[in-house]
Design a binder for these strands. Structure first.
Length: 448
DNA sequence: TCTGGGGTCCTAGGACCC
DNA sequence: TCTGGGGTCCTAGGACCC
């Protein structure tokens, strides 16, 4: 087996960099992209200028602004970042045989079949040519040159920088990309893996988090070199067979995980939404409204992807951060907001809530399957409901997600908070699904 | 560091069936 | 049945990633 050459590419301060690329006035300035304007939100990404002040991803927004009061705060726009990422990955995919999308701003690329002398390459000048990596006409000589070209192409087309790592497998490639940031390029060939790992803290490896780090510390292990010395039987005993084996391999820089092209990526297994309330909820009504809003969003996504879920999961986080996760298998797969709401509320009512203040709620659908062509089997009444749901979806497709909503949602504080925090101007939908007589409906009375 | 929102995978125990 | 063992489904929780 020849040595594999796996490349990991990680966009630098991605969300903040996208904003800076789009708006010259943000360049060179500390920028914080944070989910929304709630005091409870966190830093999604900080530009390198803001990081210089100690601002970090995941930090409470308030703390980030305390460290760097002059930072420009931008509410995140996930759809925009996802679209930029999609265009970047498409570009890389055009150049190379297989791109695996690992997260919104990271990808793995298998360059094993890129051959040639491994000489120090020169960064390309001007407009990068359009090479292919893999033996086709115009192909580049080696993985390092390929990496330079990818970085140059991304810089040219998107005004963004990326850090790249190359290694004999995904584990080492990902480690390498994190060693020099931003705009880095680090290659760790197989012959240098052991030396690179010897004194590396264990939690630098992807997959070892704070908990595992703590357990390893109890065994007197802090570095990968130290972990490699632990007898595998002890790892089995402490962590189980699967995780124990994996830890042992990781400590030696061994990883067999293949690069799975995104064209062959497995279908999503679950989809869900969660929301941390601006203020802890004590009323069942507020909780129900929030659950309904989340369930409607989940249903909408399911239908858009032509999926249905057989399992509904409800997450309830109390003010003290105690978190409950409850799920229930449904009699039949569902995809409507109403059905998901009903299932989630049934779970909630079985939980024995007892009025404790609720901080966060989450609703998700699991055990997803493609929606079959079963519509013809539906009863007349169900066909009517189905037609209504599809008509509402068409309205949202055309006029936006907030164009129409159930009246209980449309007039709720939850709706206002949620969409106000997302930076939208107008709060009330243009139309509501009437659940009350017209005379009780301010919109229909022309008061909006 | 009073801690968002989107996911994935693994473990362990109980129910139930053969 | 005061019994063994295997398989599958279901649920709760934990750990990790960005």
């Amino acid at each position: 087996m020849p040595e594999r050459h796996i490349l990991h590419i990680d966009m630098d301060a991605f969300f903040a960099s996208v904003e800076q690329a789009a708006n010259p006035r943000l360049r060179g300035k500390p920028v914080i992209v944070g989910g929304n304007r709630s005091y409870r939100s966190v830093v999604a990404t900080a530009s390198y200028e803001a990081r210089a002040f100690g601002v970090k991803t995941g930090m409470p927004l308030g703390e980030g602004l305390r460290l760097c009061p002059q930072a420009i705060l931008i509410p995140g726009d996930t759809a925009k970042y996802a679209d930029t990422a999609r265009r970047i990955f498409t570009l890389l995919n055009d150049l190379s045989p297989a791109v695996e999308v690992f997260s919104i701003d990271e990808a793995f690329i298998d360059l094993t079949h890129v051959h040639g002398p491994l000489s120090p390459p020169a960064p390309p000048m001007g407009l990068p040519r359009r090479p292919t990596f893999g033996g086709c006409p115009g192909s580049v000589a080696d993985p390092v040159e390929a990496a330079y070209l990818m970085k140059a192409m991304i810089r040219h087309h998107f005004k963004l920088t990326a850090s790249v790592g190359i290694g004999p497998n995904k584990l080492i490639a990902k480690l390498a990309s994190g060693l020099k940031k931003p705009d880095g390029l680090v290659w760790i060939p197989q012959a240098q893996v052991q030396a690179a790992l010897e004194n590396l803290p264990v939690d630098e490896l992807c997959g070892i988090g704070p908990r595992t780090k703590g357990h390893l510390l109890n065994l007197g292990v802090t570095t990968c070199g130290g972990l490699a010395q632990i007898p595998i039987r002890l790892l089995h005993q402490k962590f189980g067979i699967i995780w124990g084996d994996l830890l042992h391999k990781m400590s030696q820089g061994v990883s067999e995980s293949p690069v799975v092209p995104y064209t062959q990526a497995p279908e999503a297994k679950s989809m869900g939404h969660s929301h941390t309330l601006n203020h802890d909820a004590r009323d069942r009504e507020d909780i129900e409204t929030t659950i309904q809003m989340l369930a409607e969003k989940v249903g909408r996504r399911l239908r858009r992807d032509k999926m249905q879920g057989k399992v509904v999961t409800l997450v309830v986080r109390l003010a003290g951060f105690e978190t409950f996760v409850r799920q229930e298998v449904q009699p039949a797969p569902i995809d409507s907001g109403a059905a998901i709401t009903q299932a989630a509320m049934a779970i909630f009512d079985d939980m024995g809530w007892r009025g404790r203040p609720v901080r966060m709620l989450g609703v998700s659908a699991g055990a997803l399957t493609a929606r079959g062509v079963r519509q013809l089997e539906l009863f007349e009444e169900e066909r009517g409901e189905r037609r209504l749901i599809e008509a509402l979806d068409r309205i949202r497709d055309k006029y936006g997600e907030r164009a129409i909503a159930p009246a209980t949602l449309a007039y709720s504080q939850v709706w206002d908070d949620h969409y106000a925090l997302k930076g939208h101007g107008r709060l009330t939908p243009r139309a509501v699904i009437r659940e009350s007589p017209p005379e009780a409906d301010p919109l229909l009375r022309g008061e909006s």
